[in-house]
């Protein structure tokens, strides 16, 4: 479904992604993990075409992604920060996003699910952070898309809403969807994730089942396993192939490194 080939991205001198090769083809929940600044959000945003790669290619359903963005009708995306035009009302915002897609929407069901009935006519500028995040979740999950990308979905949610979110995530998995989630809450990963992709400084250091990760570093829980990964010892990036170029006697030589 989604393939990333040798994906690289730098912002000025800062290299955020340094050669990512990964595919998200199988249904299930993939947790994209890594410390702050490891490139998680950049990775997810480049799938949506919000970040334009410096090098490499992304294909979605077999086709390279394009600027027109029609392919995005098959992706639901939850942005990390929930801020909306302050003077619009909740219902208006939902109608606006619905007007961009001609797909059936289940916004009414989700509004009930998150208990947002009473704030539908409130202006978005007057909502609390947690309520805004619930609106954000409604906007994201109201479409039946094969791919769902959630960037820090739990931010600001109260425990009740968190439980409801988990229900929705599990339901989506059971419908055979591909879910990509970033989070810093390891218990959530432990509970939900079928696969863990661990990023550090723009490279993938682990890609596999959470159990495999725990076994590899011999830690009983994921939080400690990740900490152990970070403290060194087990750290070697998984690199597949990587194109390189070098100058020799004025000539540029291209080669592919395999490791």
């Amino acid at each position: 479904m989604i393939q990333l080939h040798h994906l690289e991205k730098s912002f000025g001198r800062l290299e955020v992604l340094r050669g990512i090769d990964v595919a998200f083809d199988q249904p299930g929940i993939t947790a994209v993990l890594g410390p702050n600044g490891s490139g998680k959000s950049t990775l997810l945003k480049s799938i949506l075409g919000m970040v334009l790669p410096s090098a490499g290619q992304i294909t979605f359903q077999g086709k390279p992604i394009d600027q027109q963005g029609a392919y995005r009708k098959d992706i639901s995306y939850l942005p990390q920060i929930a801020r909306f035009p302050e003077n619009l009302r909740v219902a208006e915002l939902i109608r606006m996003i619905e007007s961009f897609r001609s797909q059936p929407s289940r916004s009414a069901e989700l509004i009930r699910h998150f208990g947002l009935e009473s704030v539908q006519q409130s202006q978005l500028g007057h909502l609390s952070g947690g309520t805004r995040q619930k609106v954000n979740l409604v906007l994201t999950l109201m479409y039946d898309t094969p791919v769902i990308i959630l960037d820090e979905p739990t931010a600001g949610l109260d425990p009740v809403a968190l439980v409801k979110l988990k229900e929705l995530i599990i339901q989506a998995r059971s419908e055979g969807k591909i879910l990509l989630i970033t989070t810093h809450i390891m218990s959530l990963v432990e509970e939900l994730a079928d696969r863990v992709v661990f990023l550090l400084e723009g490279r993938i250091y682990f890609d596999g089942k959470p159990e495999t990760l725990k076994e590899r570093v011999q830690e009983p829980n994921l939080e400690k396993a990740i900490a152990s990964l970070l403290s060194g010892g087990h750290l070697t990036p998984i690199s597949t192939t990587r194109p390189v170029q070098a100058k020799m006697n004025g000539k540029v030589i291209h080669a592919t490194i395999k490791s």
């Binding site: 945003k45 949506l48 075409g49 919000m50 600027q67 027109q68 963005g69 029609a70 392919y71 995005r72 009708k73 992706i75 995306y77 942005p79 920060i81 929930a82 801020r83 909306f84 035009p85 302050e86 996003i97 961009f100 897609r101 954000n136 906007l139």
Partner: peptide, 17 residues
């Protein structure tokens, strides 16, 4: 500036930039 984050939400929709 105020609509930066909202722009992200719009960019994720199937509409051209």
């Amino acid at each position: 500036y105020n609509t930066r984050e909202f722009t992200e939400l719009l960019l994720a929709q199937p509409i051209p930039r």
